Simulated assay, not measured.
Amino acid sequence: MVISCCAVGCTNRQGHKPGISFYRIPKNPERRRQWIAAINRKSWEPTALSRLCSEHFLNVFAHTKSPQKRKAITNLNNFQRREAMKKRKRQEGEHRQAAKQLSMDKDTLSIGLQDDGHEDGIADEDAVIGDCQASLSSSVMCQTEMSSEDISSLLFECQQLQKENTELKEKIRCLDLFEQNSFENKDEKVKALTGLPNFQVLMAVFSFMKPSLSNMSNLTCFQQLMLTFLKLKLNVSFTFLSYLIGAHTSTVSKVFTNVINILNERLVPVSVVWPERENVQISLPMCFRKSFKRCMAIIDCFEINTEKPKDLKARAQTYSQYKSHNTMKYLIGITPQGVISFISKGWVGGQLTGISL
């Protein structure tokens, strides 16, 4: 029989339109009276086959299961809950029974040992322990049926894996730019990344600087020094160095500033020294002896670019019209032999000319 809607003027039938549900007239007297008043059909009484489609409801709602189905589902849930509770109680009872049996066996064993006497009890206890160890060893032997050749093969494979692991770790250390092992016997790499001529000079500088350095933010002293040399030689950004070494950008900036100050305090006083005139005259190059016999130093003024200061006054003072950039000026003196003998303090690039400096 085809189910159709009982509303006046509605032609909806089951299967005619997708997404339409049909609902029975409620059996509850109060709800049934409200439904009949809403349908508003004169001299009409619904039968057991009367249905009302979902298009006549104010809000479209999901299909509600019949009371019989809801009751069956509730009964099923209650049954499953009771079965789970029975199973849990049964397991708890089994555990209590096993614990009680174990306690009784232990008491029986102790009573038997006391009846036999102290020495006999010790002997029996040792015998029981020996039997347990024998049974345990036999079970272990049954579980691991391996010959001496299998054991030797496993030991050899383990040694090979350990050796391979050690070699891989060594290769990783050599590939790391901030590890000391990666620069050994590689003078070209040292010169390209730090500007120093060879590895021996690099280690000499590091040995001289190490007492003033300390581990900072999980970076070793050598890593801090190499980070500073890379920044000075290649002028890479702090962001690039942070990705390269695996640290935050602010940490890299702090390390660089700290090491630069230490380099200035430790290296400048011992490396930039004004020489005695006699020492310069003794080793004066031949090209100077003819025309510049009394030359002590060749001076020059140079500018280096700086970051733009946040303070407006400092930004105006350091801005150089000639360089179109914020700069600092320095006066440098070099002996005829090519050794730096003097470096002045820094001056703002926007106020002094080279001649004034």
Rank of each mutant, 00 (worst) to 15 (best):
R24A: 14
I25E: 03
I25K: 02
P26Q: 00
N28S: 08
N28R: 11
P29N: 08
P29I: 09
P29S: 13
E30G: 00
E30H: 00
R31T: 15
R31I: 15
R31C: 08
R32S: 10
R33H: 02
R33V: 05
A38F: 13
N40Y: 04
N40T: 06
N40V: 05
N40H: 10
R41S: 06
K42D: 06
K42M: 03
S43L: 11
S43M: 07
S43G: 09
S43V: 02
W44H: 03
W44K: 06
E45I: 08
E45S: 10
P46Y: 01
P46L: 01
T47K: 01
T47I: 01
T47P: 00
A48G: 10
A48E: 15
L49F: 01
L49V: 01
L49Y: 01
S50Q: 02
S50G: 01
R51M: 06
L52S: 03
C53S: 08
C53Y: 12
C53K: 06
C53I: 10
S54C: 04
H56G: 00
F57H: 02
N59H: 13
V60T: 05
V60N: 05
F61T: 08
A62W: 04
A62H: 09
A62I: 05
H63V: 15
H63Q: 14
T64Q: 10
K65H: 08
K65P: 02
S66L: 13
S66C: 08
S66E: 12
S66G: 09
P67D: 11
Q68D: 09
Q68L: 12
K69H: 11
R70F: 09
R70A: 14
A72K: 10
I73P: 00
I73V: 08
N75A: 15
N75G: 07
N75I: 09
L76I: 01
N77D: 04
N77I: 05
N78L: 12
N78C: 03
N78H: 10
N78K: 13
F79Y: 11
F79T: 12
F79S: 13
R82W: 02
E83F: 01
M85C: 03
M85N: 06
M85D: 07
M85I: 04
K87M: 11
R88K: 11
K89D: 07
K89L: 14
K89W: 09
Q91H: 03
Q91T: 08
E92W: 06
G93M: 13
G93Y: 07
E94C: 12
H95W: 03
H95P: 00
R96M: 07
Q97F: 05
Q97W: 04
